[in-house]
Simulated assay, not measured.
Amino acid sequence: MQADPNPTVVRINLGARSYPIAIGSDFAALAAGAAGLPAGTAALIVTNDTVAPLYNQTLVDRLVAHYSHVHTVTLPDGEEHKTWQTLNLIFDALLTHGCDRKVVLYALGGGVIGDMTGFAAACYMRGVDFVQVPTTLLAQVDSSVGGKTGINHPLGKNMVGAFHQPRLVICDLSTLDTLPARELAAGMAEVIKYGPIADMELLAWLEANMDALLAREAQALAHAVKRSCEIKASVVGADEREAGLRAILNFGHTFGHAIEAGMGYGVWLHGEGVAAGMVMAAELSRRLGLVDAAFVQRLRTLIERAGLPTRGPVLDARDNAGRYLGLMRVDKKAEAGEIRFVLIDGPGRAVLRAAPDALVREVIDACCAA
């Protein structure tokens, strides 16, 4: 992609914590178009051993004119490394380089890097600035936006973390050119979710343009990222700390997080778990009388076209549904042990509500691989 001197900018409106999301095709042009980089005494780029050889030096070259020192810490790649031990490598680097409260952290990578960098920024010296530079589709349309940060616990995904908003999000679409096909498909799950919960026109557009998206056509990807960020910005602006409305962004995630934890982090990609989880949540919605079978099939067909799983794995051959239920009770939306699901309350609308365990068991039995 050619550098875009006039990037698309979507704003997250959170008062004093507001910030821009710059969408385009060059790190430097995007930062300039979004009103520049945050000031600081030094920068620490946090990346992983997959992304670093591709983009770290490019980002270093862009930052050296803005900071007196630019450091890099390279973490191991993968969801299985989203732990306290890996998080401490970021703190080790900050302290080794003598970084003060004016340091700015740069998260260069996918959702794991973004979540851990944001959490480190929230904790280091009780809070420093950070910038998201997402290099995966999933991170560009979802995890880099909204200030959710954290790490996994063996018993539950993202159960330890903090709300800490970035100062800027730089979505360089050209980084998607090097994304493996499986990772691109996983990111598509987070794009698809915005249709059923908020925008049926987007769902129809995805049906018409899925082939172009999977072929990485620049115009299609730019629209998908922009519209996804617009929807998320609207929801986060209304409910920053997930007191109510923001929970709808977790459509498919309650089932999906159970899949990730039950299979072992990294076996299923996050987006793959969300994809199967969306089918389960849609089927649960149907059995509660909220949508019809045609809607469920429409969603399932689109997920299949994206190259994503539509059936969940068997986590326990003896009591698969029981294993899912146990994992889903360790969920941030659960209250007093009662699981609350994001369900589709008619096309383009979502609701957070509980469902009888017996019905959830039926859905899991119907929607998991034989």
Rank of each mutant, 00 (worst) to 15 (best):
T96S: 15
A65Y: 10
G150L: 05
D142V: 09
G147T: 01
Q140C: 07
I151E: 01
T86F: 04
L87I: 08
F119Y: 14
K148L: 11
T117H: 06
T149E: 06
L37N: 02
L108Y: 04
L59D: 04
A121K: 01
N48K: 05
G114F: 01
F91T: 10
L108E: 04
C99W: 08
T41N: 15
H81T: 13
V128K: 07
L138V: 11
V70Y: 05
I151T: 10
G33C: 03
C123Y: 02
R126A: 01
L37Y: 06
V104P: 09
A29Q: 14
G127H: 04
G147M: 05
E79R: 04
F91C: 05
H81M: 01
H71Y: 15
A139R: 12
A122I: 00
A162Y: 03
G118K: 01
A121V: 06
H71C: 09
H69V: 14
L137C: 05
L87T: 08
V133S: 02
V60C: 15
V51I: 15
I113C: 12
K157V: 07
V64D: 11
F91W: 13
I90L: 08
L54C: 07
D77P: 08
V104H: 02
G150A: 07
T50S: 14
K148S: 07
V64W: 00
T58D: 13
A65Q: 15
D129H: 13
G146A: 12
L105K: 03
V131W: 09
A29M: 13
L137I: 10
G161R: 03
D142S: 10
D115Q: 11
T149A: 03
Y55T: 00
V104R: 02
Q57H: 14
A65I: 02
Y124A: 04
G150Q: 07
A93E: 15
T149L: 02
D100Y: 08
T149W: 04
I90K: 04
W84A: 11
D115V: 11
K148Y: 10
D77H: 14
L63N: 03
L108G: 11
